[in-house]
Simulated scan of single mutants.
Amino acid sequence: MSAYLALRGVSPGPLFIFPGEAPVTKSFFATQLKKSLTWAGLSPSCYKGHSFRIGAATAAAMQGVSDEEIQRMGRWQSHAFKKYIRIPMLHLR
Results as ranks from 00 to 15, higher is better:
residue 74 G to W: 00
residue 71 Q to F: 06
residue 11 S to Y: 08
residue 19 P to K: 02
residue 42 L to T: 00
residue 38 T to W: 01
residue 47 Y to I: 13
residue 84 Y to P: 00
residue 92 L to R: 14
residue 30 A to N: 11
residue 78 S to P: 10
residue 93 R to S: 14
residue 27 S to A: 13
residue 13 G to R: 01
residue 52 F to R: 04
residue 85 I to L: 00
residue 92 L to E: 14
residue 45 S to Q: 14
residue 81 F to V: 01
residue 72 R to N: 06
residue 68 E to W: 04
residue 68 E to I: 10
residue 5 L to K: 08
residue 90 L to Q: 14
residue 40 A to H: 03
residue 40 A to M: 01
residue 52 F to E: 08
residue 44 P to E: 07
residue 1 M to H: 10
residue 2 S to P: 05
residue 88 P to D: 04
residue 76 W to I: 03
residue 32 Q to S: 03
residue 72 R to F: 13
residue 2 S to M: 07
residue 33 L to D: 03
residue 8 R to T: 09
residue 85 I to D: 06
residue 11 S to V: 09
residue 35 K to P: 01
residue 37 L to K: 02
residue 17 I to E: 08
residue 52 F to V: 09
residue 18 F to C: 08
residue 9 G to K: 05
residue 40 A to Q: 04
residue 8 R to W: 08
residue 59 A to S: 14
residue 66 S to D: 09
residue 67 D to C: 07
residue 72 R to H: 12
residue 6 A to Y: 00
residue 4 Y to N: 02
residue 23 P to T: 05
residue 8 R to E: 04
residue 12 P to V: 07
residue 62 M to L: 10
residue 79 H to E: 15
residue 45 S to K: 13
residue 67 D to W: 01
residue 79 H to D: 15
residue 1 M to C: 06
residue 82 K to T: 13
residue 76 W to G: 03
residue 50 H to P: 01
residue 35 K to I: 14
residue 35 K to R: 14
residue 15 L to M: 00
residue 91 H to G: 09
residue 59 A to K: 14
residue 3 A to Q: 12
residue 8 R to Q: 05
residue 45 S to G: 15
residue 51 S to L: 13
residue 79 H to I: 13
residue 20 G to L: 05
residue 54 I to M: 07
residue 46 C to W: 12
residue 70 I to W: 11
residue 62 M to F: 02
residue 38 T to C: 06
residue 62 M to I: 03
residue 2 S to E: 15
residue 7 L to S: 07
residue 47 Y to G: 03
residue 48 K to S: 14
residue 77 Q to I: 12
residue 29 F to A: 15
residue 20 G to N: 00
residue 58 T to G: 04
residue 61 A to Y: 10
residue 70 I to Y: 08
residue 28 F to P: 06
residue 79 H to S: 15
residue 35 K to H: 14
residue 92 L to I: 11
residue 6 A to N: 09
residue 86 R to E: 08
residue 81 F to S: 03
residue 61 A to K: 12
residue 16 F to H: 00
residue 64 G to E: 04
residue 49 G to P: 10
residue 36 S to Y: 07
residue 86 R to P: 02
residue 60 A to L: 12
residue 3 A to P: 07
residue 1 M to L: 11
residue 40 A to S: 06
residue 83 K to S: 12
residue 44 P to M: 04
residue 55 G to S: 04
residue 53 R to L: 06
residue 1 M to P: 10
residue 12 P to A: 10
residue 89 M to W: 08
residue 52 F to M: 09
residue 65 V to E: 03
residue 42 L to C: 08
